[in-house]
C-alpha cells in the first residue's frame, strides 16, 4: 500500500469531553438512519475504492461520529460515491448519504447560487 503521507490510525485517546460532536448531529439530522449502524463492516468490505486504497468507510464514519476530524476530508475524497455500500447494509443505513453529508460539512462545499 502506498504511503499517502498521513494516517488516521495513529494511536491516541479520544477525549469525548473535548470532542466536537455537533457535526455528527448535523449528519444525523439529514440521515437519521446513520444512528442504526452496528459497525459490521459490510460496507467497507464491498467498497469499490477499497480495491485501490485503504479507504474504510466504517472507520471514517465512526471517527466522524466521535468528533475526530483530522485527515478525514482527505479520506473522504477517496470515495467515488458509487453507492454499492448502501446495497449491502443490513440495517438499511443510507451510507452514501452519510458520506455525502460528511463531505459537505468537512469541505464546506456549498451549492452554487444562481446569478
Amino acid at each position: 500500500m502506498k504511503d499517502l503521507g498521513f494516517s488516521i490510525s495513529q494511536s491516541r485517546t479520544i477525549d469525548l469531553d473535548k470532542s466536537d460532536l455537533s457535526a455528527y448531529r448535523r449528519v444525523v439530522e439529514k440521515v437519521p438512519s446513520a444512528k442504526l449502524c452496528l459497525m459490521c463492516g459490510a460496507c467497507t468490505a464491498t467498497c469499490t475504492a477499497r480495491n485501490h486504497t485503504d479507504f474504510n468507510f466504517r472507520k471514517v464514519h465512526l471517527l466522524f461520529r466521535r468528533g475526530q476530524f483530522e485527515g478525514l476530508a482527505e479520506e473522504l475524497d477517496k470515495c467515488m460515491l458509487c453507492g454499492k455500500c448502501r446495497l449491502v447494509c443490513n440495517r438499511g443505513v443510507n451510507t452514501r448519504a452519510i458520506i455525502y453529508n460528511m463531505r459537505i460539512i468537512l469541505e464546506n462545499l456549498n451549492y452554487k447560487s444562481i446569478k
Binding site: T48, N51, H52, M80, L81, C82, G83, R96, Y100, Y111
Partner: peptide, 14 residues
C-alpha cells in the same frame, strides 16, 4: 477485480 466507478454517481450528487 479492480473497477473504477464510471463517475455518474458523483455527477448526480453535483
Amino acid at each position: 477485480d479492480k473497477g473504477v466507478c464510471c463517475g455518474r454517481p458523483l455527477r448526480q450528487q453535483g
